[in-house]
């Protein structure tokens, strides 16, 4: 059962990483326009250089 001492903090940490990633994505407006984002990768604009 000693393994729990490692496993529980690890699982909590991993859960926390997931939560932080979610909050970052939310703050970064990644859920505003899922359909548009999936279409935008098909556009050729700014393929040659980054958008200023």
């Amino acid at each position: 059962m000693v393994i729990l001492v490692y496993l529980i903090p690890i699982s909590l940490f991993l859960g926390g990483v997931g939560l932080v990633a979610f909050l970052w994505a939310l703050g970064n407006r990644q859920f505003e326009d899922p359909e548009g984002d999936s279409q935008r990768i098909l556009a050729d604009d700014w393929d040659d250089r980054p958008k200023p």
Binding site: S11, G15, G16, L23, L26, G27
Partner: peptide, 17 residues
Amino acid sequence: GRDLLMRLGVAGFAMMN
């Protein structure tokens, strides 16, 4: 909307753990 979504996310992750 983002505020609600954030609370939803926090509750979701806590629920899973």
